[in-house]
Measured scan of single mutants.
Amino acid sequence: MLDDRARMEAAKKEKVEQILAEFQLQEEDLKKVMRRMQKEMDRGLRLETHEEASVKMLPTYVRSTPEGSEVGDFLSLDLGGTNFRVMLVKVGEGEEGQWSVKTKHQMYSIPEDAMTGTAEMLFDYISECISDFLDKHQMKHKKLPLGFTFSFPVRHEDIDKGILLNWTKGFKASGAEGNNVVGLLRDAIKRRGDFEMDVVAMVNDTVATMISCYYEDHQCEVGMIVGTGCNACYMEEMQNVELVEGDEGRMCVNTEWGAFGDSGELDEFLLEYDRLVDESSANPGQQLYEKLIGGKYMGELVRLVLLRLVDENLLFHGEASEQLRTRGAFETRFVSQVESDTGDRKQIYNILSTLGLRPSTTDCDIVRRACESVSTRAAHMCSAGLAGVINRMRESRSEDVMRITVGVDGSVYKLHPSFKERFHASVRRLTPSCEITFIESEEGSGRGAALVSAVACKKACMLGQ
């Protein structure tokens, strides 16, 4: 009897593995994704193909990295998701002549009506938060230079001027797309009239992360975010950046690689679950690469896999709870928690219980395998993109072996128990001629924006502006 049951459990697990095998990517698959990513990057950089390229390769006008001589107080704003952060950054000489960066910050959550109302409502709310922060720190009387981390696709015309191309991540505030974001912020500050600010720089969160990590390690020339969304930036040779005049030196390019796949480059790798996630998203047909990796989508992918296993009578005796059938019910943090389970399955059992399920031991094991399959594919897909960037940098610099540091931020990278190990191992397999160091950014977005502002202020002083 026991043997029969054991055989049935083994057969069930084997069927589960057959279904989950769809998520496995072979090294040849990853090399294919990497080569296609490089081709799209090239198209994004070139003037004649930029418009139709899915990977936009947006110039950021960040050319210099901090040298350690900029000092002063800077205000930093960070808008990239449902939370908005205001930070005071003091850049100065530390002990023994070292450079020191001290920060104080406060988080504000953005109400739904500000995210989806008008641009005026959104930026009025942001300036209200700045006003509140300055009151708390008794700094209303000071006109501070301000660095703005704005983590949406922007076409820069200068370091302090950028046109919002399109909202992502659930934002829909009308009247912002096609307009200068810094102008919208300046107008809102003017409307309030109770404080003055000098907006000197606007950067993407990947750029802010790279600059913040450069402060720790001067070989950091790539910034990457794996959180709600997924994106990367890197220092490109100016001669390859056709959208900006000049051939000397390097400029940081914001790849906006989340949109890779929007022209069909990933079609052969998309599964039924991916198509369902895409169809029910706020932007169907867009940001397809990001939807395979980002935390906004990972939990939902797992939920759809679990429903398939229920329908195949391989999980929960073929019956799903009402909660499990509800879109968004299986949160991405559950994926991390399930994979963090120590082996007694308590954590998995508790999560499934909150979803109205009474799982068996085998159910718990199957749910864990589903989570591992989805998150491992995410790590491997992400590795193909980064390997594409790094191999490109090595080739354009004609280096036999390139040493490089990548600064990384984002909740999936930082909080998932195995993502970074799987990701690092896969990147290294795909970049055999590179020695890569990964560092995690601390308060990256805010500190990085302030350091970019410090560079901009120093330049302005040198130019006598």
Rank of each mutant, 00 (worst) to 15 (best):
E9N: 11
L134F: 03
E245Y: 08
A173Y: 09
P359A: 10
E27Y: 07
E319M: 09
T405M: 04
D78I: 07
R275Y: 12
A10D: 13
D198K: 03
E9V: 09
S445M: 14
V55P: 01
L292A: 12
Q24A: 11
E256Q: 10
C129S: 11
K291S: 01
P59S: 06
A173N: 12
Q38S: 02
S127D: 00
E27C: 02
Q337C: 04
S131I: 05
K56P: 07
D187T: 04
E28F: 15
E312T: 05
N166T: 12
R422F: 11
I436H: 01
Y349E: 12
V33T: 12
R7S: 11
L292N: 03
G328Q: 09
E95S: 13
R429H: 13
E339P: 02
R303N: 00
R250K: 10
K15Y: 09
S263C: 15
E221P: 01
L288K: 09
D42S: 09
G464A: 07
R36N: 11
L306G: 01
E177K: 05
I19L: 09
E22T: 07
T354M: 15
A10I: 13
K190N: 12
G343D: 05
C461W: 13
M235R: 01
G117N: 12
S174N: 13
F74S: 06
W167N: 12
V389A: 07
G72M: 00
K102G: 13
D124L: 03
N350L: 04
Q98R: 08
A454D: 13
S336F: 12
G261L: 03
F23E: 00
R428D: 07
L146H: 00
K31T: 02
G299I: 00
L386E: 00
T116H: 06
D217A: 04
L45T: 03
I436A: 01
L301C: 13
A379V: 07
C382Y: 04
K140M: 09
R394C: 05
E339Y: 03
L357V: 08
G117Y: 09
H380R: 11
L309F: 11
E256D: 15
K31F: 11
E290D: 14
N350R: 06
T376L: 07
V91S: 13
R275H: 09
G388V: 11
V203T: 12
R422G: 06
E40L: 00
A449Y: 03
S54D: 14
G448F: 10
I126L: 09
L301Y: 09
V199R: 08
L451Q: 11
V406R: 00
S151K: 13
T209F: 02
F84G: 07
D29Q: 11
V200H: 08
D274I: 00
T49Y: 10
D409V: 06
I390V: 10
Q18I: 15
I366V: 12
D3E: 08
G162L: 08
R192H: 11
I130E: 01
I404C: 14
L304H: 15
G162H: 05
I159Q: 06
V226S: 03
M393S: 02
A176K: 05
Y297I: 01
L144H: 01
G299M: 00
K142T: 09
F419A: 00
Q18L: 07
S151V: 09
K458C: 04
R46Y: 03
E272T: 14
A456K: 14
R303S: 01
G147Q: 07
L386Q: 03
V154A: 11
E17D: 04
T118L: 02
C230R: 02
Q24G: 13
V310W: 03
G72N: 00
A329F: 15
T437Y: 07
K169D: 13
H416C: 10
F316G: 08
K291I: 02
V199Q: 15
G249Y: 03
Q286H: 14
T255M: 15
G246H: 07
E120K: 00
A208N: 01
H424W: 11
R358Y: 12
R392G: 01
R36K: 07
R5N: 09
E442D: 09
Q18A: 12
L75Y: 02
E17G: 05
E272W: 03
L276R: 13
V182W: 09
A387I: 00
A370I: 10
L58R: 08
K104P: 12
G80F: 05
D205T: 05
E93L: 14
L30K: 03
W257L: 07
V71F: 05
V244N: 03
K136V: 11
I293H: 12
E272H: 14
G388H: 03
V101C: 08
S212P: 02
M57D: 00
E279I: 14
H50T: 08
D274W: 01
L266I: 01
Y125E: 10
I348N: 04
E300F: 00
C220T: 06
N231Q: 10
F419S: 00
G68P: 15
K346M: 06
E112D: 04
E279W: 09
D217P: 06
G97D: 07
L314V: 14
E440N: 03
E196S: 14
V310Y: 12
L77D: 05
F23W: 06
E48P: 07
Q38L: 07
P417N: 08
K190I: 15
G183K: 14
S100Q: 14
D3N: 11
A119W: 05
Q286N: 14
G97T: 08
L352Y: 03
M202E: 08
E48T: 05
F419G: 00
F269Y: 03
K458R: 11
Q323F: 07
G464N: 02
T431A: 15
I211S: 03
A387E: 00
A119Q: 14
L77S: 05
I439P: 00
T376E: 06
T103I: 05
T60P: 03
I348F: 01
M87V: 12
E300A: 01
L165D: 15
K172R: 12
F150V: 14
A6T: 09
R275T: 08
R85K: 13
D187L: 06
S426C: 12
C220I: 04
V222C: 05
S109T: 06
T361F: 08
G464C: 07
R394A: 10
R447A: 14
S281I: 00
C220M: 02
L75K: 02
E196F: 09
A456R: 11
V91A: 11
Y108C: 06
P153I: 04
G44E: 01
A119P: 08
G444F: 06
E256N: 07
D3W: 02
I348G: 03
E268I: 02
E28G: 11
G388K: 00
R397W: 06
L451K: 04
R422T: 11
E248N: 14
M34H: 03
L165M: 12
L386A: 09
